[in-house]
């Protein structure tokens, strides 16, 4: 319990660091660019349905940013293994556990901040969002909570398996590919069936769907696959990823932590300096 408290304190300190000074620009860049993009094609119509893309895209984008928490966790883990943060945690009693709690708190905090940065101005840019009802906030809350657990636990497991920040960089390519077929920026029904099938294996599509179900009027479900918000399936797929992540992550993280040593960090440093030099 004490470890958990220290971890939360750690996460909050890092969260504050991530949103202060020059860091703030980096943090705002992507959400703001995304808002600009939405602004420019908010009035385009989807297949003569009379439905404007802005309303469809904003919730999908919120789902995508939740999923991007996975990429953040992978990056933090690989970078901070290389720079010795994890070794420092290993040298401290309960350090690794507190480090991980801190990282998840920080990443969740960042994701929630992105959602706020997108949703608050977005609500003024885009017509027809359903923000006044309790049920939409309830749906939003469970989709976001389940999404954070699923994507970050899977991210932690992948981050432990990936050997370096360079490899983590490569890993963002398949993530981008999955995002591009997950109906974030354009309804998934526009894609061929086999791509729809692949997309439905991954959390991104379901996060987007869950967000649309929370924020759009029920009639809009007609644009979706099976003309339904499919809450049960959303819960099932996100829940399955969360369970898988929570089962695998501790095992691979323990293995990763066991292998850290001063000699290893010295070797990372050696390699990194050679690359620079």
């Amino acid at each position: 319990m004490r470890t958990f408290r220290i971890g939360v304190a750690r996460g909050l300190i890092e969260l504050r660091q991530a949103f202060s000074g020059s860091e703030l620009v980096n943090q705002l860049l992507w959400p703001v660019l995304t808002l600009v993009a939405i602004f420019f094609y908010r009035n385009r119509e989807f297949r003569h349905t009379g439905i404007r893309l802005g309303g469809l895209v904003l919730p999908g984008v919120l789902g995508m940013f939740v999923a991007l928490g996975m990429v953040l966790v992978i990056q933090y883990l690989t970078v901070e293994r290389e720079d010795g943060t994890l070794l420092r945690a290993r040298a401290t009693p309960h350090g690794i556990r507190a480090y991980l709690v801190g990282k998840l708190v920080m990443t969740s905090g960042c994701v929630l901040a992105y959602l706020a940065i997108l949703l608050v101005p977005g609500a003024f840019l885009v017509d027809g969002l359903r923000l006044g009802s309790v049920s939409s906030w309830f749906t939003l809350a469970w989709v976001v909570a389940l999404g954070l657990v699923a994507t970050q636990s899977v991210g932690a497991a992948l981050g432990a398996l990936v050997s370096s920040p360079r490899a983590a960089g490569l890993l963002t390519l398949p993530v981008m590919a999955v995002i591009s077929i997950s109906g974030v920026f354009y309804p998934i029904t526009a894609l061929p069936g086999w791509l729809q099938g692949i997309a439905q294996v991954f959390p991104v599509y379901w996060l987007g769907l869950g967000m649309r179900s929370a924020l759009l009027p029920d009639g809009m479900a007609s644009v979706e696959l099976h003309h339904s918000w499919r809450h049960l399936e959303t819960f099932g797929v996100l829940g399955a990823w969360a369970v898988a992540g929570l089962l695998i992550a501790p095992v691979v993280l323990r293995r990763m932590a066991r292998r850290e040593s001063g000699a290893r960090v010295a070797a990372y440093r050696e390699k990194a300096l050679q690359r620079i030099g």
Binding site: I6, I13, V265
Partner: peptide, 25 residues
């Protein structure tokens, strides 16, 4: 353990980091 640090905890302030790491003990 005195580790040879390199660039970990770069954004932390000295006092903040020592106070935080002390809280584990």
């Amino acid at each position: 353990i005195v580790l040879q640090s390199w660039r970990d905890h770069g954004k932390w302030r000295v006092r903040e980091l020592l106070a935080h790491l002390g809280s584990y003990y």
